[in-house]
Nucleic acid binder design. Sequence first.
DNA 1: CTCCTCTTCCTTTTTTTATTAGGTTTAACA
DNA 2: TGTTAAACCTAATAAAAAAAGGAAGAGGAG
Lengths: 148, 148
Amino acid sequence: MGKDLIDKTDQKIMKLLQQDARMPLAKISQLISMSSPSVKERITKLEEKGIITGYRATFDLDKLDRGMTTFVMLKTEKCQRFIELCRKSKWITDLYRISGEYNFLLKIQTNSLLELKEIQNDLMEYGPSKSFIGMEQLISNQVDISYS
Amino acid sequence: MGKDLIDKTDQKIMKLLQQDARMPLAKISQLISMSSPSVKERITKLEEKGIITGYRATFDLDKLDRGMTTFVMLKTEKCQRFIELCRKSKWITDLYRISGEYNFLLKIQTNSLLELKEIQNDLMEYGPSKSFIGMEQLISNQVDISYS
DNA sequence: CTCCTCTTCCTTTTTTTATTAGGTTTAACA
DNA sequence: TGTTAAACCTAATAAAAAAAGGAAGAGGAG
């Protein structure tokens, strides 16, 4: 039925699109030695199969006054309400349900401790939590495509 | 000197490009009621200012046999060597230096516990660590652009 | 084996999109 | 008040994407 195999060529295309989602077909086709209609056909198939899920611009969070990263682990029983709160929050960029002592792991991007304090206040009522300030991002969402 | 102000229009453009980095200028220009050369000019400036840092394709990690997410917090004194190891690792997609009891926070994407076990072995020699399995990603890198 | 079908790729043509050129308006400021 | 710079526009040109049509090869069924 659903054979989602991707070959070496697909991998190369995906790698290029991961680096630059707006790279023209002509350039991709040149880099991997394949005609641009064929490249396009492969990309379309990868999209249809749901392997490529989208294309996003990335921003410099410092320049958007969101340079401060904080991770929070939190334990709560009011899960649905908590998730809603996170979705509405302008500062929470990532939310995971996790195993272990805590239920959730949040990534928060704020300008300063001021906003962070406000968020912490909101979170407090949901249960105990632990926070870590992110000092430096050394690797950022680098998915290695080779052999999948 | 470097006034990095972005206005309402820039925000709208950025929001659209965050949703779909490959949206044609014509569509953006229609959605925000501005001519496409003007839209292009703004995008170019946002890139030049370093506010827009890139465009990336996103993938379904399940379909790439990388569906399992694990977070590891680790304390080590061999920082440089540890960072090198992480950079070389095919499975580690994110690495942060953090404050507190642990030095580093890693995000690991594997197929199964098997690969995870191998990684844990490698990590062990660097120092004590704590792991959490990510059960579900509820919010994924959603940066709210409004008022920056 | 041989015909059929499906996939993948190609080249060529057409359509769409991006870029450039040139000009208008407005605001800031000497 | 004249000058400059920024931001926008329209129109023309250049570039890229999409569509059309077809060839080559792999695998299955008779």
